[in-house]
């Protein structure tokens, strides 16, 4: 007969993954409104590719395909890839990303629960190194293409028109500052019409919605507050410091927090339980490190955004951090002190 307890909370892995998808949905809606249905096309494409690769790998590893496909974890990875890759990327780029995530990062490391790195971020890192130009082309501001044309671009029937694409506000500022030493941020923001109400125009609402989605995950108990809190605070603090030192060359904290992948990173990527830290203090350190690194990489590095590399670097440190942040066992003053 079965062993105790004989009751179980109705929570399950598929439910957790579904909640993550639900939490992403509003962000996706706003993103789609901003960019166009290409976003949805990418999500569908990534999902189909992810489920396909997942099924193939499960088959090869002789695991029950239907049960593990049903845990929806591949879907979450696929959606994160679709949301972090440029929406007008060619289809094969997305598929390569998904391949890296599902086949290499996840299954070759032992499958669900075993991967030391965040699959979606490995996908991003691999692709931005291999295809830096493609991974930096975002639809130009105010560009609204009909759906057919977006599809044509994604699936390669139409030539890629460079004029239609541009860098993100974050990237644009960095490049401009690098190439033109005379200019300053205020000038750039107004002249290039990049600035919205409090951050990159358009983007600010997408990231705002991710923040709301993150709050939903917190409320549902899917994630704990430690990682996102530490991420946001550390990024706010370091960007505020730089900004106070030289507001001409460094954007303000709000701009940083609500541009690029900061919110997605804080609530949906750095919180990945498998590749992140598992102790409360460890999560604080993890979030802090990820926030700091993301800022440093996006401001001083060569890539348009720093979330992926920041999270991957912290993934490497996670086991070590966990080891040194074990919480006190109830009834003992400190782990390993008395009563051993």
């Amino acid at each position: 007969m079965t062993s105790s307890p004989h009751l179980r909370d109705p929570n399950s892995i598929p439910r957790i993954m579904r909640l993550v998808c639900v939490a992403l949905a509003p962000g996706i809606a706003i993103y789609t409104a901003l960019i166009g249905p290409a976003v949805l096309a990418q999500i569908c494409l990534a999902s189909v590719a992810a489920l396909f690769f997942e099924a193939v790998m499960l088959k090869i590893r002789a695991l029950p395909v239907r049960r593990f496909l049903g845990d929806h974890s591949a879907l979450v990875t696929a959606w994160l890839i679709a949301l972090t890759f440029p929406p007008l990327s060619p289809w094969w780029l997305t598929v390569i990303g998904v391949f890296f995530a599902i086949v290499i990062t996840k299954h070759l490391y032992g499958g669900l629960g075993q991967n030391p790195f965040n699959p979606a971020m490995i996908a991003f890192a691999a692709c931005i190194i291999a295809f830096p130009a493609l991974m930096s082309q975002w639809p130009a501001q105010g560009l609204s293409l009909p759906f057919e044309q977006q599809l044509e671009i994604i699936f390669g029937f139409a030539p890629r028109i460079d004029a239609l694409t541009a860098a993100t506000p974050l990237d644009a500022i960095k490049t401009a500052l690098k190439t033109n030493a005379d200019t300053n941020i205020q000038e750039l923001l107004t002249s290039q019409n990049l600035y919205g109400t409090f951050a990159g125009r358009g983007w600010e609402w997408v990231t705002m919605t991710y923040l709301c989605g993150g709050a939903f995950l917190l409320a549902m108990g899917v994630i704990t507050w430690h990682t996102p809190f530490a991420f946001i605070v550390s990024m706010a603090v370091i960007s505020a410091l730089c900004w106070l030192i030289d507001p001409g060359r460094f954007s303000d904290p709000l701009f940083h927090l609500f541009s690029g992948g900061a919110m997605l990173g804080a609530f949906f990527i750095a919180t990945d339980p498998v590749s992140g830290c598992s102790t409360p203090r460890g999560r604080l350190i993890f979030g802090c490190g990820a926030g700091l690194l993301a800022y440093l990489i996006r401001v001083f590095g060569v890539f348009p955004d720093g979330i992926a590399f920041a999270v991957l670097i912290m993934n490497i440190c996670a086991p070590l951090i966990d080891r040194y942040t074990q919480p006190t066992v109830f009834g003992r003053r400190a782990r390993g002190s008395d009563a051993r």
């Binding site: 079965t2 499958g111 669900l112 629960g113 992140g276 109830f330 009834g331």
Partner: peptide, 22 residues
């Protein structure tokens, strides 16, 4: 009980443990 899945290190168990274990 549904079949056992791999542990995803969600730490729900650690948050529930009255002995403060992992």
């Amino acid at each position: 009980r549904p079949p056992e899945s791999p542990c995803i290190r969600c730490t729900a168990c650690a948050q529930a443990c009255p002995q403060g274990l992992q």
